[in-house]
C-alpha cells in the first residue's frame, strides 16, 4: 500500500468538496478517477499532493511530499522560461543533461530552448509532463492532463504516459472526464461523487497492447457510463 484515504473529507469555506471518501492504492497501480463535474476530483488530487489539508478522515502515504508529482490541468509553464528551464524548475543545474535526455525521449529535443508560446498545445502538455517526471515521482497525479488536446494527440500521449509509468513502476492517479481515457489508462477505475466512491471497476485487460480495439474495452465504457447515469 502506497496511499490510503479513510473517510476523507475536504471542506471549503462555503461548500464541501468531498466527504466519506475511502481509497487504498497499491504501489505501481494505475487508478483512473472519474465522476461528474464538481464532485471534488481535482481537490482530491491536490489533497494527495499536499496542497490542501483534509478537514476530516485520514490520509496515509508511504512516500514523502517530494516523491509525489502533480501535473495540473493547464500546463502552467512559466512564459518567461525556456522549455528546459521550465522542466528544471526548482531543481539543481546538474539535472540539465537528464532533463534534455527526457525531453528528447518525449519528442521535444528540438524545442528545449523554445519558449512555451512557441509550442503547440500537445508539446506544452508534454513539457509539463516532463516537468513532473524529471522529479522521479513514486506517485504521479495527473489532473485531466490531456483535456485540451485533439483526439489524435490525446491518444498518442495516453500511450506514451502509460508506457512510461509502467516501465518505471510509478503509481498513477489520473483524474479525467473521459471514460474512454479512464479505461485505457487505469488498471482500476474509481467513480466518485462528492459523497465518496460510488463504483469501482478492475480492468483485467489493462496490460494488453490491443486494448483499444477489444470488445471488452467498449463494454467497460458502457458499464461505467451506465453507472455514471445512475449516480446522477
Amino acid at each position: 500500500m502506497i496511499l490510503s484515504l479513510t473517510d476523507a473529507k475536504l471542506d471549503y469555506p462555503k461548500t464541501t468538496a468531498f466527504e466519506h471518501f475511502s481509497l487504498t492504492v497499491a504501489s505501481g497501480e494505475m487508478v483512473s478517477i472519474i465522476g461528474p463535474s464538481g464532485c471534488g476530483k481535482t481537490s482530491l488530487l491536490y489533497t494527495i499532493a499536499g496542497l490542501l489539508p483534509l478537514s476530516g478522515g485520514t490520509m496515509r502515504r508511504a512516500v514523502g511530499n517530494d516523491e509525489v508529482a502533480l501535473m495540473f490541468q493547464q500546463d502552467r509553464l512559466l512564459p518567461w522560461k525556456q522549455v528546459i528551464s521550465n522542466v528544471l524548475l526548482g531543481l539543481p543545474g546538474e539535472k540539465t543533461e537528464e532533463a534534455a535526455d527526457l525531453l528528447q525521449s518525449m519528442g521535444l529535443g528540438s524545442v528545449i530552448h523554445h519558449y512555451p508560446h512557441e509550442l503547440s498545445g500537445g508539446m506544452r502538455q508534454r513539457a509539463a509532463l516532463a516537468r513532473a517526471l524529471i522529479r522521479k515521482p513514486n506517485i504521479l497525479l495527473l489532473d485531466e492532463p490531456l483535456a485540451s488536446l485533439d483526439e489524435q494527440q490525446r491518444e498518442m500521449l495516453q500511450n506514451d504516459i502509460k508506457e512510461y509509468v509502467q516501465d518505471h513502476s510509478i503509481t498513477l492517479l489520473l483524474v479525467t472526464h473521459s471514460i474512454q481515457e479512464a479505461v485505457f489508462m487505469g488498471s482500476r477505475i474509481v467513480m466518485m461523487t462528492n459523497k465518496g466512491v460510488s463504483y469501482e471497476l478492475h480492468n483485467q485487460l489493462h496490460g494488453e497492447a490491443s486494448l483499444r480495439t477489444r470488445d471488452e474495452f467498449f463494454t467497460m465504457q458502457k458499464t461505467l457510463r451506465h453507472h455514471m447515469e445512475a449516480s446522477r
Partner: peptide, 9 residues
C-alpha cells in the same frame, strides 16, 4: 500553487 506543488524554496 505550482511553486508549492513542486516544493520551491
Amino acid at each position: 500553487q505550482l511553486a508549492e506543488a513542486y516544493h520551491l524554496s
